[in-house]
Design a protein around this nucleic acid. Structure first.
Lengths: 190, 190
DNA sequence: GATTTTTCTTGTCATATGACAAGTTTGGTT
DNA sequence: AACCAAACTTGTCATATGACAAGAAAAATC
């Protein structure tokens, strides 16, 4: 299971078999219980993880102190706070488990070593980031070009697990609306 | 001037002097006139550029066919469509000059060579991307947590050149509002 | 420099969403 | 099982922003 999931995640034409197992070996199993914090505002990220099974969210507090969910992490997603990890700075985000979760973790210095020694791994990282970049771009576009209802419909398509298991108020803030409005949209749809 | 600007852009502790000039040498000057397209929807990006002097915007058409400005590029910004360039796919974005512009361009294959041969360059690239990722995250956050008026105020602070020189309708779509609303916000502020 | 086209402003009205408050339901804790 | 706290729904009213249309200003074109 470890190697199955991880070799899927790290699948890239320029990573050879030997290198792949080197990368996979660098990951350690970690488990979290619902409610546990993986990262807290003000701390510095020291590692990232692959979600084996579970559900998490990242969130922060906006200018008015409101808790805003910025992302959800489902099975096989990469759980990472890029800015804090790569720029070695304290983060302003929190990451918290919404369900009991099992992950594969890799520490920054081990990652760093692999990044510089395995060419294909660096390439993989760049592709992953360009993909993330695109997703965030898409997200800000959606926020302005489609209605909250349509954003919700899209979430149902794209991350059904989230809709099934995350607290509604977290989904609401992720969609950029209040839980009140979200409740009305749900009513309207059903 | 070439080396001044570029050595500022590529400033990174792990890029040595010799490597830096190697990177700088790889850039060629290109000029554009107001209105010129640098990249069109459906094409594949073959290079990226550093803005020496000028102003550009990237934009695309939303689900209703409305022209939405997704970003502005000012002096010393990196003009790039990450997804198309790195994943070698056709883009859905357009990039267009809003003023006559001078840039330093580097082709994908040359970039690719430098990325694999200069360790510090790969590191620089990763930092740049993590920074971009943060900006886009911030942008989607702003879209939901602050008002259009506050987003405009922030743009005035952060990219005054844009406010001074870009067409109002482009700024409006960038802010996620109609040009009508934007006109009213401007009136209210002045 | 006159004309045409595009951009910007303003008016009126509609609508999605927010703010706040009061219930209701759910879920965790003892 | 009973209780308490948190999560969710619903009501009323307010407001930011959109849609559409008409006019004014600015810019591009001849």
């Amino acid at each position: 299971m470890k190697s199955e999931i991880l070799s899927q995640v790290y699948n890239h034409p320029r990573i050879r078999a030997g290198e792949l197992s080197q990368i996979i070996d660098a990951h350690q199993k970690v488990e979290f219980q619902k409610g546990d914090f993986i990262l807290k505002q003000g701390e510095q990220a020291q590692s990232y993880m692959i979600m084996d099974e579970g559900l998490m969210r990242s969130f922060l507090y906006d200018v008015n102190g409101k808790d805003i969910t910025t992302d959800f992490f489902c099975d096989h997603d990469i759980i990472i706070e890029v800015l804090s990890l790569f720029q070695r700075t304290p983060t302003s985000e929190n990451i918290q488990a919404l369900k009991d979760s099992t992950c594969w973790k890799i520490d920054y210095d081990v990652f760093q070593e692999l990044f510089h020694s395995i060419d294909g791994f660096a390439e993989w990282g760049r592709l992953w980031m360009s993909n993330s970049l695109f997703q965030f771009k898409q997200r800000s576009l959606d926020m302005v070009s489609i209605s909250a209802k349509d954003r919700y419909m899209r979430l149902i398509q794209e991350k059904p697990q989230v809709v099934l298991h995350a607290p509604l108020k977290n989904i609401a803030s992720y969609l950029g609306i209040t839980d009140t409005s979200f409740s009305r949209i749900r009513k309207e749809i059903s």
